[in-house]
Amino acid sequence: MSDCRDCLHEISDYLDGQLDPELKRVLEEHLVSCHRCKVVLDSTRKTIELYCDGKLFQLPGGVRERLHTALRQKLQDRQR
């Protein structure tokens, strides 16, 4: 791994656990000595975690009831 640009290229596959062992070893070696790349890696991982947080984007009040009412209503209309 010659520089940060090479490291950046591999970050996505690294997070997906898709790097081959040798490349992974070289990347991790680079990360030990390069704070900038470590920040990019950590904050990218955190970005993904935040979007996956199950507490966020729960159905707001009323949405669920309206969904189930609308489905029942429309499907009953179709069956008539």
């Binding site: 950046l8 970050i11 997070l15 990019v40 904050s43 990218t44 955190k46 970005t47 993904i48 979007y51």
Partner: peptide, 10 residues
Amino acid sequence: ARLMLREELS
């Protein structure tokens, strides 16, 4: 997309 979102959230 991951890097762009990271940039915005940062």
